[in-house]
Structures are given as C-alpha cells and as structure tokens.
Design a protein around this nucleic acid. Structure first.
Lengths: 344, 344
DNA sequence: CAGTTTTTCCGAATCGTTTCCGGAAACTTT
DNA sequence: AAAGTTTCCGGAAACGATTCGGAAAAACTG
C-alpha cells in the first residue's frame, strides 16, 4: 500500500506538502502542485480514509436511514404512507453526492416508535450526516437526533411542520393536480379512494381534495370519499365492490396510490366497467406499476430522484454551515399522461 | 467525545486493557472485564471506527456494487437480464450482516464494459470486501477484481462458470418448474416469450425449456419460442400481436419476466382472450407486479433476499479464510401460486 | 519458601493523515 | 545590499485505536 510518505519521497517534497496538495490548499506553488499530482497518479496513490478521518474527526460517509413505515419487504417499491419510495430517493441521493467523496451507508430500518434507537445507530456508525427518509411526523425523533449533533435532513412528505431541514413532496398539491385535470377533462362524479387519514399524508390529501372539489363546484358527496387499508390492493377491491354495490357510478376515481388503483380496477373489470371509457382513474403516485397496468395509468409523479438530489445538496450545505436557518424544500409533483383518463 | 483513554482512566486500568476487553480477548480477568464493560456503558463509549481501522488496516465496511445492466432508473425493480432485483438482494445482504458491525456502502453503478473501473472504485473507497450484484458473465472484471486483493462475491444468475465465490439463482431450473407445472395441469401448446439470448441467462432459460419440452413430449415448435426486447413490455406486446396474428393459439405462455407477461396480456386482453380461461401465463420472475396484475400472476420466485443473505455469509467466510477454495451456491427457485394458470 | 509457571496487565510503538508553527527561500522595496 | 514581505516547505504533534513484548501478580511446585 502506497502512503503519503512514499509519494512525498518520490516527489522530493515533505509529507505535509503532499497533504496540502491533496486538500487543494492555495499555499503551494503551482509547479510543485503539478509535480506532486503527477507522482500521485504515477504511483496510483489513494489516501487512506481512516487516517484522514482520524485526523479530521470526519467519517467521509453519510447515512441513509429508511424508516420502518416504508419497510422494504413487501410494499417498499410502492407508495408508502409517506407517499415515497425510499429506494428511488436513495438513488437521487447518490447522484446528488456523485462529485463529493462521501460514501453512503445504508442503515438498518427504524421505526418512529423507537425515537432513541435511530440516534444511537447513527452515533455508532459515526457518520458525518444523515438522511432520514420516509419519516412521518416524528418530533421526538427529531429532537433526539438534534442532541447527537449530527446534521441530518428529513426526506418525506409535506405534512406537519418540523423544526429541521427537510425536502418534501407535496401530497395536497398532487391530489389537486389530479382533480383539476379530471375536472378540466369533463369529469363530474369523482370518487376518492384513500388510505386511512390517521396517516398524516393521507389526511392532507383528503382535505386538499375536499377543498378543491367544493371550490371547483364538482358534485360533493362525503360518501364518495372512500378509505381502505393502507396500500392494500385487496382492500381497495373490497371497498370498491361495496361502493359500487350501492349503485354509485363515478366517472372518475382518484386513488391514493397505485396498488389501490389496481385493486379497484380489478373490481371494475369484473363488472365490465371499462377504463377509461366508463370511468377514468388516476393513482396519486406514479410507480413502475402504472406503466404496466392495462390500460397504462395516468398518474401523479412526485419526483423521488429529485427529492434525493435536493436532500443531498441540502445536507452538504448544512454540514458546511451548521448555524444557518433550517430550510424546507417542497418539490412539486407533475402528471405523467398515459391511458387511464378519458378526455371528453 | 469519549475515547478509550477516558474509559481507561475512569476504570483505573490501562488503555490496552480496555482495548482487550473491547476485542473480547480471553486474557483479561473476568472481574476487570466486567468493570470495564460497566464503565463503557456508563460513559456511553463507542469506539472510533477510523482509529480502529487505521490500526487494523480494516475499513469496517463492505461495498455493494450494482452492475449497470440492472440500472435502477427504469427497470431496476424488475427482473433484469440477470434475472435479479438488486434492491431485494441488498436487503438480504443487510440482514445477513445484521450481527456484525460492518456497514454497507452502496457504490456507483458499473458496467461490465469497463472492467477497470470497478476495481478502482472499490480500491478508492477502501472496503474490506465487496458484493458484485447482477453481474453477468464478466471474466475480465473478475480477473481485475482479484488483482485488487479485495475479497468479493458475485451475486447473480447461474450461467457461466466463473472462478470466484458466487451465489446464484438458477434460471434453467426456474423455467423448468414453470413448464412442468403447466404440463401437469394439462397444458399442451406452450409458448415461450423470452428476451434476447445474447444475454446468457436467457440463453440458459431457452435451452432449459427446449430440452424439457421435448422430454415431456409437449408439442415442440421452434416458432413458438419468441424473443422480444429486453424487459420491454411494449415489445412483448408487439411480439405477441405478431404471433397471434399468425393464427397461433397457445394455451399457456411462459414469459421470461413480469413486464413481458404484462405486455403480452395487454394484447390478449384486446383480443378478448381470457387469462387464465383461454390461456395460462407464468412469468419467470415473481415481482411486486405479479401480485397486482389482473388476474394476479402465478410466478417463479428466485428468492432474492435469500441470495443476499447467503452472499453475506459467504463473503464473511472468505474474509476469514482467504485461501479456501471458491464456492458456488445455487439457490433453487420456487413457485408462487396465484390466479393466472388454469388447472384442468 | 525460593523458584517456576501461568495469568493478568501495562507501556510504548504504530497505523496514515492533517495541521500548526517556525523558518528558509524568493521577491520587493528603499 | 540590507531590511522587510511573501510564499512556500518541513518537523512534529495530534487523532484514537491495536498489539506486542515484557513486567507484575498470582498460582503452582517440590
């Protein structure tokens, strides 16, 4: 293993000089700088992260912690109750970190129910900063995290105000987008298929939609605001079955997420109700599922990659300046147009 | 930050003693051991990874490298041409590492086309070992990796023999499972919808299936071995369209992966051909998609989590004993039964 | 009980960087 | 050319652990 000492020797300079070059210090002559750089390249030297970190009190790595509520085992790839897909976000983070030399350590999955555990894990692993993704409202956790002194940013959904840096998708805005589009395309009887509103982001969605429906003068019927189990296609199927059995015939359905939409469609399909000819359908969150459904689903996209990228940027800035005021970035959703909405 | 020195002081022992306790050395009296442990707990001491690593020449972290061919941006969550979903594998790895104190560093995505880049990245990040997941046949890459001296294991699909530790799913076996099941349930006219056989794992699938079809005495028709673009539902749709336009009417379709199956089903749906009443369909790889399709798809599951877990175990063993012979673990697939196969 | 072995602990060197500080070299100014 | 400024470089002390050889203490021997 070639060390800084070897490089120094070969280049005929001192170790500290090499170090200065490495750290882009301005107080080394251009000429020597180039020489050293050349030797580094020639000898294929790469600085030892541990030594560097030991000296710096830095770890050269950031943690990505995925909250339990977006557990990977089953519905991870989907919209989870934070409306986020942790995996895509991680990707975004990685791309946002591409030109730094931070490594990313993906940590165990944590639950909000244990607000101590996370800070502990992070402390043990000794990262320089952390992304907490998919986190729902968790003031206690946030408070504990702050105590560790490790900078962090929340990546999630815009619901409660939290006193920390955060990059968030906007569920209310997304639902609004869907409703507006449906109204514009001539739909009149809109049904909203939601997850339980005890999940804050679904609460936000529901109220956003209610507001808007009234505003736009669409027929408003509280009974058309359905709720089914979280992310359960099967539950959506049942809910839709019960709903349609009452004789209700919506001309559009906004589903809180893709599995819900698919579950609902299954029932529609059984009854011979065609999508989009008889009823249009828009799931809140675009996912891989939507593109492959029959018909392919027009959907709201919350830009997970972008969330991750922005989070990376934010964390980097925070680490540079620990005293700056907290920042909250809300990323607007957009619509991906496919075939599940009938344009009249 | 509390260091080993603080602990030593408070416990009234030397630093080396504390270190010995930390490393579970047998040469410290039970009594002192307990004392030290108590102090550690009391002071909330956690050893500094960098210092430890500097001393040990160890990095306390392992790299997970995901090969480009399973690029996340689009089809990552699906079967990729290695038949693997890198994400689930990562999860498996994490669970396999749960009781060690290794962290996982997920690395940039690499392509086999650049067999130098990967070893370089790994070398720079200085990990103690690496998982190379989703890698197709890549002898040059493997050779380069060996030169780095960093232990690694390949996680992928059983196709070529490679001179390295590996944990692999068995594509041939999976296809066979599907065919056997279809034959047992009374299907006679089986069509195989594959990806291009220039991808080795698809080559293996195809030949496995051909063999078996002949063996089992099912009607064999080379023209029923379709090939479409890699993982492209749209391409499967077109291929199936052209195929059905010839008047062919299979009673079962084995698709190489879920997107293909869905693409094909779209065309079937258009033609009013019912699944499973008129034609059964089994995608090779179970994925989140399968459960939500209409009807839900019976599928082959390659146990990605398990692949990851075994890989973790294997790498750990390799690191312990660098000279042991290479090992190759093949994980058998199983079938998840849902509603896309008609049992006659 | 002196000598020997075994057990338990400690001191000091080491790992590869960074960083501070003193001082040399090069350049300006007068 | 001497004095004063800049600009650069090298020595040395951290950083927080591990490890090895040997000392001290305890436990056996005969």
């Amino acid at each position: 293993m070639v060390t800084i000492r070897d490089v120094a020797e070969r280049a005929g300079v001192s170790r500290s000089t090499v170090s200065l070059v490495l750290n882009k210090s301005p107080l080394v002559k251009e000429e020597t700088r180039e020489l050293v750089l050349a030797v580094i390249k020639e000898m294929n030297y790469v600085p030892n992260n541990n030594a560097r970190g030991l000296s710096n009190k830095t770890m050269n790595s950031l943690g990505v912690i995925i909250m339990n509520e977006s557990q990977p085992s089953n519905s991870y790839n989907f919209d989870n109750h934070s409306g986020l897909c942790a995996y895509n976000i991680s990707n975004g983070i990685m791309s946002g970190l591409a030109d730094t030399d931070y490594g990313i350590i993906t940590e165990a999955f944590c639950s909000v129910a244990e607000p101590d555990r996370l800070p502990k894990i992070i402390g043990n692993r000794r990262v320089d900063g952390a992304f907490i993704v998919g986190s729902p409202y968790a003031p206690e956790l946030v408070a504990n995290m702050k105590k560790t002194g490790i900078p962090f940013v929340l990546v999630g959904v815009n619901s409660y105000e939290q006193d920390a840096d955060s990059v968030l998708a906007d569920p209310g805005e997304g639902s609004a987008l869907a409703i507006r589009y449906l109204v514009e395309t001539g739909h009149k009887r809109i049904c909203f298929l939601n997850c339980p509103t005890r999940f804050r982001s679904y609460y936000v969605r529901k109220h956003g939609v209610e507001q808007l429906v009234k505003e736009l003068g669409v027929e408003y019927n509280p009974e058309w605001f359905l709720s089914c189990e979280h992310n359960q296609g099967a539950s959506a199927y049942k809910t839709m079955k019960a709903f349609l059995d009452t004789g209700a015939r919506p001309d559009a359905i906004v589903a809180a997420n893709a599995p819900l939409a698919l579950g609902a469609m299954r029932r529609l399909h059984e009854l011979g109700i065609r999508v989009p000819e008889d009823v249009s359908i828009i799931p809140y969150e675009d996912s891989v599922l939507c593109g492959y459904a029959v018909p392919a689903l027009t959907a709201i996209n919350i830009q997970k990659e972008k969330l991750g990228q922005l989070a990376a940027k934010l964390l980097l800035e925070r680490m540079k300046d620990p005293d700056r005021p907290y920042q909250k970035i809300v990323v607007p959703p957009y619509m991906t147009f496919r075939d599940s909405v009938l344009v009249r």
